[in-house]
Amino acid sequence: MAMPHTFVVLVENKPGVLNRVASLFRRRNYNIHSLNVGTTQDPRVSRMTLVVNTTPEKAPLIEANLYKLVNVIDVQDVTDRPAVRRELALIKVRARQGMRTEIINLASVFRANIVDATPETMTIEVTGTPEKIDSLIEMLGAADVVEVVRTGVLAMTRGTIEGARHLPGAGGR
């Protein structure tokens, strides 16, 4: 059964590396659900969080193929690991007078912030698991939602042992 798998990928911070990863996914016909790239504490290393829809049989092959990229330093499939998963979304809703209080109340239930408002609209910033964001959007009602942008998931395993990804020279694999 295909389901979302989350991979944390450490790559060398060099031009073209994102293209190599994206090209691999296209070439092997893997279906990227979300992809997030950012910096880490080490300026030589970037960190990707990839969510891919795949089967448990195929997931190790994705991991192995990522490892084959010379610029990929480390890969971890955190799908079944205890991990913190967070996504950030900006949601713009139509908000005329009379609806505003309801929207503000809903946002506070989800610990979301109103980050912008115009006479016509309000923009909500929310952080949480993808499921939480899904349900906020649902509660806001499709009719009132003007625009949504989501970062895709960021993931970090819990604790010091599992969460400390091995960097070059730190024991290898």
Partner: peptide
């Protein structure tokens, strides 16, 4: 030597 060959075609 290539881990990506393991289980690719044949379990």
């Amino acid at each position: 030597v290539d881990p990506a060959e393991i289980g690719k075609n044949v379990p």
